[in-house]
Design a protein around this nucleic acid. Structure first.
Lengths: 193, 193
DNA sequence: GTCTATAGCGCGATAGAC
DNA sequence: GTCTATCGCGCTATAGAC
């Protein structure tokens, strides 16, 4: 869609507010103030408030997809390494890149139906990446269970970290990802990472 | 607090709407209609909209605590069984009992600070139950990792099921709980449940 | 305990000047 | 591309009759 640098910047600021306050409680006046303009001017860039949300979610999901794909391309073929790579990439987009991916996960239901239909393929592509990696791990015998269930349980564990994890606390996001993988693959040699 | 049967019933109806629409998008007019009264009458039972949320969350957390505690009391001392029991109890309060516990998990941040402070001990008690069970599993050597991290990962995986699991689909909530435990304890004999 | 009526406010969005 | 000004609506909550 429209991807002017200005609009990109506004989308980035919107993502921050949507994470802090939630979409419903974020007003167009708050968004405008954060962007240094008046609320009326916002509607020159976006046709309505929901289009801002769609832009944030598209950005967040696309970014997660790009980062995960890139990381997978660079990490070799070992199933355990690939699993750890995906977990790290996921937490990186949630906590380092920040905001847009969190909004995509937690405000998806606020999308209007047409935007949701348009963005579903992006989300599905990201989930497909995960199912592939899980599948490799299942075939290698280092994980067990139904591929879709395992993928959703692992993603759930990762997504929920948004609610309790402090990225500036004792553990880095990478360490947190490694702890999750270590819990799932107790027999692997992960003590000397 | 005030726990008249009438208020209990209204709280139950409110929980349903809060899950369907989210707290912010649920209006007092919608709540009143669902309860068969006019919106002004609502404020005879609750001093404001936030007090309704606090009542729902208290109900949901207390109920989760009661059910989990009861289930643990009845299930013996085997660490694996206790873990499975907790997972089943958690999904039962999310999908069978329905609604109030879901609201407690997903709308906690909408509580005003005083209500949040007042209810924190309930949530902590429930989490403490989980950490105890996880601790037993760690000491028995059937799970590995940091007690708090493992508890939060497992709870995250369970909580996120609200976003994708259909309790009327192919798997019952109990089966889903068992699948999660089977993923975590791959060496246990769970094939003949 | 529920009603009617409405106060008072903040919201999303628009119009037209610059 | 941003401004000022404002419309029209729906929201939470209140007041007072019944």
């Amino acid at each position: 869609m429209n991807a002017s640098p200005r609009r990109k910047e506004l989308t980035r600021l919107a993502a921050q507010l949507f994470v802090q306050e939630g979409f419903d409680r974020t007003t167009v006046r708050m968004l405008a103030q954060e962007m240094g303009i008046k609320s009326g001017s916002l509607f020159h860039h976006f046709k309505d408030k929901h289009e801002i949300l769609a832009a944030v979610i598209e950005e967040g999901t696309q970014n997660a997809l790009n980062i995960a794909q890139q990381a997978l391309d660079d990490c070799g073929r070992d199933p355990e390494v690939r699993l750890r790579t995906m977990a790290r990439a996921h937490l990186e987009t949630l906590f380092a890149d920040r905001n847009a991916h969190v909004v995509a996960l937690f405000e998806w239901r606020r999308l209007d139906p047409s935007a949701s239909a348009h963005l579903r393929h992006l989300r599905d592509a990201y989930e497909a990446l995960w199912v592939d990696v899980i599948d490799d791990a299942l075939r290698a015998g280092i994980l067990h269970g139904d591929r879709f269930l395992v993928a959703r349980f692992v993603l759930g564990a990762l997504n929920w970290t948004v609610r309790w994890y402090d990225p500036h606390g004792a553990r880095t996001p990478d360490e947190l990802a490694d702890e999750l993988v270590a819990m799932l693959l107790p027999n692997a040699d992960t003590t000397n990472v």
